[in-house]
């Protein structure tokens, strides 16, 4: 498949957040400010792209030859967990401010379903190595875009007069729904 097609498709047309409902927890959790959204988006991009590359090798060099494909879920989640641990140490050292801002959500990348989903979909769709990385990059950029857009909307919502019951997550979900309608306008491009 054309790499550009994969990228455009995963960022806009089949956006992992709006069309496939993946990564909703951090999507709602860290989208209150654009600043934290950026940090989270970068961290996720790094983890997903790395995870795509590593899981590709693990699947084709270890799991397939040994005929233990059923351990896929278990193996992949462990790889992702270690990667997250690594990036946590790295950010803690490189940028304490960013580390403070993301706080509890950094370890939660492990349970961000986009990461595991991308690695499993890479294998299911029988992507080559380069295509896997393109898919991972596209998925994370799509997630980043969605997160950033929602954070922008929610910053404005802070100033709006929202009914009490809808304050916080409910109104964010409604906003996400409207954005999802907008994104469905991309369907048919690819």
């Amino acid at each position: 498949m054309n790499l550009l097609t994969i990228l455009v498709s995963t960022v806009f047309v089949n956006n992992y957040v709006f069309a496939r409902f993946l990564g909703i927890c951090p999507f709602l959790g860290v989208s209150q400010k654009t600043e934290t959204a950026t940090g989270m988006g970068l961290a996720v991009t790094f983890v997903i792209t790395m995870a795509s590359a590593i899981t590709y090798f693990v699947q084709h060099a270890i799991l397939d030859p040994l005929g233990i494909g059923y351990l896929q879920t278990l193996t992949f989640i462990l790889i992702i967990a270690s990667l997250v641990q690594f990036i946590e140490l790295f950010i803690k050292k490189a940028s304490p401010a960013l580390y403070d801002a993301m706080g509890v959500y950094l370890p939660l990348i492990t349970t961000n379903c986009v990461v595991l989903a991308v690695t499993i979909i890479n294998i299911q769709e029988k992507f080559t190595f380069v295509e896997s990385i393109a898919n991972g990059l596209g998925a994370s950029l799509g997630f980043f875009l969605a997160l950033l857009l929602l954070a922008g909307v929610r910053e404005k919502l802070e100033l709006a007069n929202v009914p009490k019951a809808l304050q916080g997550v409910p109104i964010a979900l409604v906003a996400a729904g409207l954005m999802s309608i907008a994104f469905s306008g991309f369907s048919g491009i690819v």
């Binding site: 709006f18 069309a19 409902f21 009914p163 019951a165 809808l166 997550v169 409910p170 109104i171 964010a172 979900l173 409604v174 996400a176 729904g177 409207l178 999802s180 309608i181 469905s184």
Partner: peptide, 24 residues
């Protein structure tokens, strides 16, 4: 729209809001 992703987001938002009102 209810089966499409957009409906899912909006409905869940409304659900949570209704649940909030009932609990409060």
């Amino acid at each position: 729209v209810f089966v499409a992703p957009a409906g899912a987001f909006i409905l869940l938002g409304i659900f949570i809001a209704v649940f909030n009102v009932v609990i409060n």
